[in-house]
């Protein structure tokens, strides 16, 4: 029993290769490697035909075009069947007028859920919690969000997170609290006293030697 719980709650680690999988989805059998070269938002929801999940799926569908502009795909997951996913997606389209454009993994045997630590027994022993994994084009896990069953996720934060990660990769900078595109970014902290002295002369906006900001060129 301890082993089972350990397996079900094993969490991936930031920076590691995302666990590989091959899974049945509402758009055919997919592997993680099918997403190589694109960013991926892999997210889980507790169950089809439930209220908070339905609001989330509409919200995820609404940001799909924004994500595509960022070379980012969406892939949902729950411990439901492909037939259930198809029926739910059709229901959402018929009743709420929103087409779900992304695939949803049917993880009936919980194989993917366990690899990604999506089942938290204190929340539910059978359903996945609301996880978000941001996976980069090299299949590395770059960010993780875990929300409880009761709380729907914030789509603006997911987009902001992708913007921040892509900005970090492109410009080798960090992003401060509440950063959004166009805001100043944080210049990485100096590693030596010499660098600390030099950076004060580089035209950055420095509060002190360890906290320097700069504007990025318009892209």
């Amino acid at each position: 029993m301890t082993e089972i719980l350990k397996e079900e709650t094993g969490l991936p680690v930031l920076g590691q290769k995302a666990p590989d999988f091959e899974a049945a989805t509402s758009q055919g059998t997919l592997r993680l490697s099918d997403y190589k070269g694109t960013w991926l938002v892999l997210f889980s929801h507790p169950a089809d035909f439930t209220p908070v999940c339905t609001t989330e799926f509409i919200a995820f569908s609404n940001i799909y075009d924004e994500l595509k502009k960022r070379n980012t795909e969406l892939l949902g997951l729950s411990v439901d069947s492909v037939s259930s996913h198809i029926a739910w997606a059709r229901n959402v389209e018929q009743k709420m007028g929103v087409k779900i454009p992304f695939p949803i993994i049917a993880d009936l045997n919980k194989e993917v859920s366990k690899k990604y630590g999506m089942i938290h027994p204190e929340q539910s022993k059978t359903e996945t919690v609301r996880c978000v994994f941001i996976i980069d084009p090299e299949s590395k896990i770059r960010a993780m969000l875990y929300y409880p069953l009761t709380t729907g996720r914030n789509m603006n934060e997911i987009i902001r997170l992708i913007d921040a990660l892509q900005t970090t990769d492109k410009h080798k900078v960090a992003t401060p609290a509440n950063w959004k595109p166009g805001d100043p970014v944080v210049v990485p902290a100096p590693a030596t006293t010499e660098q600390a002295e030099e950076r004060l002369k580089e035209g950055y906006e420095c509060k002190d030697w360890y906290l320097c900001m700069k504007k990025l060129p318009e892209s």
Binding site: Q27, G28, T29, L30, S33, D34, Y35, G37, T38, E73
Partner: peptide, 20 residues
């Protein structure tokens, strides 16, 4: 990549489809 560009299908679907 070329197939995705020609068909307008997402790359992940092309890879999966090619397997099939």
């Amino acid at each position: 990549e070329q197939i995705a560009s020609k068909t307008g299908q997402p790359l992940f679907r092309v890879r999966s489809g090619l397997r099939e």
